[in-house]
Amino acid sequence: MPKIVDHDERRLELVDAAWRIIARHGLEGATMREIATEAGFANGALKPYFPTKDTLLEFAFGHVFNRTNKRIAEVTANKYGLAALRAFCLEVLPLDEERVNEARIVIPFWQKAVNDPQKAQIHQQSMEEWLATIRRYLAEARNAGDIGTAVADAVLASQLLNMLLGAQIAAALARDGKTDPALADQLEGFLALLAG
């Protein structure tokens, strides 16, 4: 009897393997052969799922974004305002090896998105989703009286998102993959400034 292949599961196995290889060697150092080997498949096994490294990178970005969103949903359940905002940010900040590795996937994707309209649109939609979530938490906090600054929530949301994305770049470029323990303190400093 032929083995039944779960294509979604195989696709995720390949993306996880790509994620590990890119985290170790960077996008340019990741070959399709190495990714297949890392996943325990023959080299040709990637082609039906990801005809090029570019399509794999695009899927990997979506996978990382979805993983992050899943963690965010778990930690923000039953939280509102600043508590939810803090929990959201702590899942995006590269505070451990897993999130640093996620940043190492996101950065090559951003580099490609500069000249690829499809990738740029994927990035834009993802960031608009995060901005809407951040603005919602800020509005909840403002309604609860926890925000006193006169700076508009839209400006605060953009400022915070830029801080989170900048932290990902810094972490991906850090020596030996060491995370900056001060990132959580910087977040707390930003949240403290909201009281105005």
Rank of each mutant, 00 (worst) to 15 (best):
M1T: 14
V5P: 12
E9A: 05
L12S: 11
I22D: 06
A23F: 13
R24L: 15
A30Y: 07
T31Q: 06
R33S: 11
A36W: 09
E38P: 12
F41Q: 13
A42Q: 12
A45E: 10
L46P: 04
P48S: 01
Y49S: 12
P51F: 09
L57Y: 06
F61Q: 03
V64Q: 02
F65V: 10
N69S: 12
R71C: 05
A73D: 08
T76V: 12
T76F: 04
N78Y: 14
N78T: 10
N78K: 15
L82C: 06
A83I: 09
A84C: 07
R86C: 02
R86F: 00
C89S: 04
L90E: 05
L95T: 02
E98I: 15
V100L: 04
V100N: 02
N101D: 11
A103V: 04
I105E: 04
P108H: 06
Q111S: 10
Q111D: 08
Q125F: 13
Q125C: 13
T133P: 10
T133R: 14
R135H: 08
G145M: 02
I147H: 02
I147E: 09
T149Y: 00
V151C: 02
S158D: 09
L160Q: 02
N162R: 09
M163S: 11
M163Y: 08
M163P: 00
L173E: 03
D176P: 05
G177Y: 08
G177N: 11
T179F: 06
D180W: 01
P181H: 00
A182D: 08
L183C: 00
D185E: 01
D185F: 02
Q186P: 00
E188K: 06
F190E: 04
A192N: 05
L194W: 03
